[in-house]
């Protein structure tokens, strides 16, 4: 069924129409429409509680407790990266990376070969036999990225994947994520509340507010982008004002009016 629909709509990787999700009385997503073309890198911004994670879970088919309606079309192969690395502490790094993977890929590599390649790609070659607790926070998140790569995803969903990392590690992870994207070209939906992260990484930034998109911004700058690029400031300003952050007095107008 899903495969058939995909054939009918080959131009998009994710297609969402009138998606509604609510928990009890609270409506979290209020008729969201979204189309993500294959290979597009999209960042999703929003305040806490704006429904970012709910949208991501809906696409990942993880929202068992929610009720809702709407059309939702997602690719067959979807990988999710969480805010915590979510490595099983009782499995060594390689065993974590290949968890659940089975069968051979198009090049005839078995899961372990794919896992080794993915670990090498994220810079963790040689750490295959380590326990997760022996890795630093950044390394754990690299391993989580490697685990998502093993699935060769058409769509990568990332829920604030660098939120728990320190600023310098985060910048390094941004570069890595962008490199991996260049090489594998999945569609990416990156949930974040870091405006800088969104403008540096994404080709398109969506702002979610009150269960609907309040801004859909295309960022037409070439990669790699520098954090120092002055042209980013304009985009940043647009996004911040869409988020209700007034740059002059630096207090969120949103909070004052709400």
């Amino acid at each position: 069924m899903a495969a058939l629909l995909e054939q009918l709509a080959p131009s998009s990787s994710v297609r969402i129409g009138g998606l509604t999700r609510s928990f009890g009385e609270r409506v979290v997503l209020d008729g969201v429409d979204l189309e993500i073309p294959p290979g597009q890198f999209v960042a999703l911004l929003g305040h806490s509680g704006s429904g970012k994670s709910t949208l991501l879970r809906a696409i990942a088919d993880l929202d068992h407790g929610a009720s809702g309606s709407g059309e939702l079309l997602a690719p067959e192969r979807v990988s999710v990266v969480f805010q915590d690395s979510r490595l099983l502490p009782w499995r060594r790094v390689l065993d974590n990376v290949v968890l659940g993977a089975r069968g051979k890929d198009d090049e005839g590599r078995n899961p372990v070969e794919r896992g080794l390649a993915a670990l090498a790609e994220v810079g963790l070659a040689g750490r295959e036999r380590a326990w997760p607790s022996q890795l630093s926070g950044g390394e754990q998140q690299r391993a989580a990225l490697a685990r998502s790569l093993v699935w060769e995803p058409e769509l990568l969903l990332a829920d604030e994947p660098f939120g728990a990392l320190d600023a310098l590690t985060r910048i390094r992870m941004h570069t890595l994520l962008r490199e991996l994207w260049e090489r594998h070209r999945p569609s990416v939906l990156l949930v974040t509340h870091d405006v800088d992260e969104a403008v540096v990484l994404a080709d398109r930034v969506l702002v979610l507010d009150g269960g609907r998109f309040s801004l859909d911004l295309t960022i037409g700058l070439d990669h790699p982008r520098s954090y120092r690029d002055p042209r980013l400031a304009e985009y940043r300003e647009q996004l911040l004002s869409a988020l209700g952050v007034d740059q002059d007095d630096n207090h969120p107008a949103k909070e004052a009016t709400a």
Partner: peptide, 25 residues
């Protein structure tokens, strides 16, 4: 529950989930 969610994302079968996540944990 975080590991339960992970297992769902990784499409583990019920037996794999028990064998590789629940029992060792």
């Amino acid at each position: 529950t975080r590991y339960v969610q992970l297992s769902e994302v990784l499409r583990l079968s019920r037996w794999q989930f028990i064998r590789q996540v629940v029992i060792p944990g």
